[in-house]
Nucleic acid binder design. Structure first.
Length: 681
DNA sequence: ATTAGGG
DNA sequence: CCCTAAT
């Protein structure tokens, strides 16, 4: 019997590379990329837009398929309605979508094909912006990055000839999840293959052409932002055909969205992230290639053949930051990867966002009202945009298994394949606000609280596996406990044959030294963990790894040495998502009181239907709870009350109604048992 | 799906 | 606001 030892790697959350940086526009400053989203855009649309094309590498399919069954049509009908009047309940207000000026209805934009989408100017297309963001990051531009062992990327070596085994013996055993991470490099793959260039150019032409055809009116009546679009239409394509789509889209925003930030590690980023015009494309490529050959010492033929290329950041610092993010996730899984909890990751946050009126929020404490009324008024006063910056996506954890004699290069490739399959296999985008998932896709950003902020980084996006491939990518609320193996393994299964992967070395059953060293390593590793929670989790992971690292009988010369087994350990962040808190406004309280006065305290469904039928985020449970708290509030002294003060008059009515209906209930309680007793007798 | 109540 | 038992 032939045994082969296998190594398993757990990748606990990839860092999808940050958006390309926009070029520096101020000395010593780095502009932070931001996205502009219509403040009224439904969260659904946001999801659709972001999630939109994660699964679809081809830029040709339509977004309408994603929007599909949504409230698209309804909203389109509502588009022309006049703006809500003053005292309309919050939800009625928000449910009406309105566009201002020459803006295109977002829904219509989403119905566009993606190609067209990419043309839509910023001023009109928040959805397209996000699509571009997604596409830019999640297409094949991403490549498998380097492996970090013990926090050190440098030591592991880049040569595909360096085997994992060697890494082990060198003290950089990739055996434990903690000690070995894979990460996407902080960059976007830069194409340097000429046919890509050709394709790119032609597609650009097509795009430009189609855009002109399809949007003649908009082009004429374009808002200011559109003007800059025309003058600098910058290869608005993504994928391996043309990179930098997001640069294109982003750059139009940057002037107004600059954020002071020291820029010291952006040397390569400048090249990658600079926008390029079709004409300038070719020279740029040469430049880049040159730079590659110089910097990227270890770029090997098999990577070329796979059309992977990667830059290499020498700055250990960046890697460290990444690691911190990783650890942060381990430490507080419940935050869903949102880095708002201190640590340096908050400066490297995944999402920054900012409202037009958030300057006050930034500089003063309570610059923006967080009450529904405040939202309402600001909503009415102006259609402000929400500016978002997607720094990175967090790809859910998955698992691969690989022979320890595989080379690092093949490991990278394996991970690449796995990730590609993973991403392609079906993900949807979750929106997190302050670490909580925003599940209600029908909420507007305003309603969801995404439009007003007191923190910069309490909004996040996360990629999640879809539970079913058939379901809409934007409506899957549940996190599957396992990933369907076919999602990830299938591409892998057929890949090894075509790859220059190393011939797997066959081990016999005596592997003591290696196992021992692995154990040692694990212990060493867990000693080095920083926080207690970390330690726990790592131990867990280590145990799991140890168990599954048992000798695995494999057929000699098996080709599936690179098989990948996606696993999933459900964590709380995936299971639970507390809804965002939405304090009841006075008008809501009034409506509630009125309804309860009439219907009583035991018919919350009717109360809901009567007074909150159009408030989708208020469930009858919410109303019941609110009534409970109202009764409590009415009973305590005014100085003990918190939040927006409820008029005493209302509280009096609450007490009165509560007393009345309690009495009624009591009477029923008395009557029923008697009746039953009579029946029994 | 609703209701009631504890957390 | 969440969770759950009981309807």
């Amino acid at each position: 019997m032939v045994f082969k030892k296998r190594l398993e790697y757990s990748f606990n959350g990839y860092q999808v590379p940050a958006m390309p940086q926009i070029p520096k526009s101020a000395k010593g400053k780095r502009s932070v990329r931001r996205k502009v989203v219509d403040g009224q855009m439904c969260a659904f649309d946001l999801l659709a837009a972001v999630a939109g094309k994660i699964l679809e590498r081809e830029n040709s399919s339509t977004l309408s398929s994603i929007v599909g069954n949504s409230n698209l049509n309804v909203k389109q009908e509502q588009l022309d309605e006049e703006k809500p009047c003053k005292d309309e309940p919050f939800d009625q207000v928000s449910s009406k979508e309105s566009t201002s000026g020459s803006e295109l209805p977002i829904q219509r934009q989403i119905a566009h094909t993606l190609k067209e989408h990419l043309q839509i100017p910023k001023a009109t297309a928040s959805g397209s912006t996000f699509v571009a963001v997604k596409s830019d990051v999640l297409n094949k531009d991403i490549y498998t990055g380097d492996f970090v062992a013990n926090g050190s990327k440098e030591e592991l070596g880049y040569s595909p000839g360096t085997t994992a085994k060697k890494c082990c013996t060198d003290g950089y055993s990739p055996c434990s999840a903690e000690s070995c991470e894979a990460e996407f490099m902080e960059g976007i793959k830069t194409p340097f293959i000429s046919d890509q260039h050709e394709a790119a150019t032609s597609v650009v032409k097509n795009i430009q052409h189609s855009w002109c055809l399809d949007n003649p009116v908009e082009q004429d009546a374009k808002p200011p932002a559109l003007a800059s679009l025309d003058s600098s239409i910058k290869v608005p394509l993504n994928g391996h055909l043309i990179p930098h789509i997001s640069s294109f889209l982003i750059c139009r925003d940057d002037t107004e969205l600059l954020v002071d930030r020291d820029d010291d590690e952006n040397s390569s980023g400048c090249i990658h992230h600079s926008t390029i015009t079709p004409k300038a494309l070719k020279p740029q490529y040469h430049k880049i290639r040159k730079l590659f050959s110089k910097t990227d010492v270890e770029t090997k033929p098999d990577f070329h053949s796979l059309k992977f290329c990667y830059t290499r950041r020498r700055t250990q610092r960046y890697s460290f930051k990444r690691r911190r993010v990783f650890e942060h996730r381990l430490t507080s899984p419940s935050d869903g990867g949102i880095s708002s909890k201190g640590s340096c990751s908050s400066s490297e946050n995944e999402i920054n966002y900012k409202t037009n009126n958030s300057h006050a929020a930034l500089h003063g404490e309570n610059g923006t009202s967080s009450s529904a009324c405040g939202q309402l008024s600001s909503y009415k006063s102006e259609n402000f945009d929400v500016k978002l910056s997607i720094k990175s996506f967090n790809v859910p954890e998955f698992f691969i298994e690989i022979s320890e004699t595989a080379t690092v290069g093949s490991l990278k490739r394996t991970v690449m394949e796995a990730v590609t399959a993973f991403l392609g296999g079906g993900l949807h985008v979750g929106v997190l606000l302050q670490g909580k998932k925003v599940r209600d896709d029908n909420k507007t950003l305003l309603q969801a609280g995404i439009s007003h902020v007191d923190k910069l980084d309490n909004l996040g996006f996360m990629l999640e596996p879809k539970s079913t491939g058939a379901s809409s990518p934007v409506t899957t609320p549940e996190y599957p406990h396992t990933l369907r193996p076919c999602d990830a393994t299938e591409p892998l299964a057929r890949h090894p044959a075509a790859s220059p992967a190393p011939v797997p070395e066959i081990f016999n059953a005596s592997l003591e030294p290696l196992v021992t060293s692995a154990v040692n390593f694990l212990e060493r590793d867990h000693d080095s963990v920083h926080s207690p929670i970390d330690t726990k989790l790592v131990n867990k992971a280590a145990a799991a790894t140890s168990n599954s690292r048992a000798l695995v009988p494999v057929p000699a010369m098996s080709v599936d040495a690179l098989s990948m087994v996606p696993l999933h350990k459900p964590r709380r962040s995936e299971l639970a998502q507390r809804r965002i808190r939405r304090p009841f406004s006075v008008s809501e309280v009034e409506a509630l009181v009125e309804a309860v006065e009439k219907l009583g305290t035991g018919r919350w469904r009717d109360v809901k239907l009567r007074a909150f039928d159009n408030a989708k985020h208020r469930t009858y449970v919410d109303l019941k709870d609110k009534w409970k708290t109202l009764v409590h509030t009415a009973r305590i002294s005014p100085r003990q009350r918190r939040g927006e003060p409820v008029p005493q008059e209302l509280l009096d009515r609450v007490l009165a109604a509560h007393a009345y209906w309690s009495q009624q209930q009591a009477r029923l309680q008395v009557q029923t048992p008697l009746a039953e007793a009579c029946v029994l007798v």
